[in-house]
Amino acid sequence: MKESPQAYPQGFQPDQASHMLAQAGHNGWLGLKYHAHGENWVELKLPWREDLVGGTGGEVLASGPIISLMDMTSGMSIWTTAKAFTPIATLDLRVDYQRPAKPHSAVIGHVECYKMTRSAAFVRGFAHDGRADDPVAHIAGVFMTIGKDPRSV
């Protein structure tokens, strides 16, 4: 993830950025996959895996991997909206859990970047396990751009 904005002359394309997910690192360890995107939103998929289940029994994905899924989906929604890869840092991320995911179910994260300022990006989204109208969680987050002096932008 060392690309400069120039690496995407046509803008950041999340469906062509699978190297960000397949790379060695936390996203690769989780096995996150590209799912879909629009102008200001991205969907990534977290496949079910036995060693990612939580402690409540029932072969259900733990909440930790879902936070990671939503954090990465948030970042990709910001780069998609900005049409450039710019280094960002999560400032604040809130996750409200509506219900556990179904046993052995993959979880899809959907995040839109609804507002960008010079130094902050605001995101909101939800996670579901098959039906978008019956989410397992909702999220809201704020990210800051890093690597630049905000006063110079």
Binding site: K2, G25, G64, P65, L93
Partner: peptide, 18 residues
């Protein structure tokens, strides 16, 4: 470790959250 790495050389926010 590589399992918690996000930006090169740094913890992934999701791993820290976990």
């Amino acid at each position: 470790d590589t399992a918690v790495e996000g930006r090169p050389g740094h913890f992934h926010g999701g791993a820290t959250s976990g």
